[in-house]
Amino acid sequence: MTEVIQILASFVGAVGFAILFGQHGRQIPLAGVGSALVWFFCLAVQWCGGELHLGVFVAALLGSFYSELLAELLKVPKTVFLFSVLISLIPGSDLYLAMRYAIEGNVELFLTHGIRTLTIAFAIALGIIVMVVLTQIRRLIGQKSRPKSK
């Protein structure tokens, strides 16, 4: 049940952020769908016994792929979709808890959540970048196969 709520919430949340970031028209529901898928895959990896960070990495990779795909189809820059699609992975709760424990003087929990904020951010960033590199490789191959198209 929690999972269903989370997937629904990541849809609505991404729609909210898509509006906040100034996306428009059909981009908004598309961002929501992407975000729901991303969260589904993040959970799915964990169901299969994967670690949280692995789940985040895989989900970020797929989310970037989704953004890249839509960007190409709708002829917009990839950044338009990237952050609203990945919004549910962003370690907002860990960041909040880290600073909360910092205020309370609970160094141990502060470090736990603080470090997790960084490592999750790292996992997301890695997912994004691996996708960027994969796209570059694909373009390279595409150019080689038809060298004089222009």
Binding site: I5, Q6, L8, A9, S10, F11, V12, G13, V15, G16, F17, A18, I19, L20, F21, S88, G92, S93
Partner: peptide
């Protein structure tokens, strides 16, 4: 509108 949706949804999410 965006803020309302995002805040409410992420409260449920977490």
């Amino acid at each position: 509108l965006g803020s309302l949706l995002a805040a409410t949804a992420f409260t449920a999410f977490f």
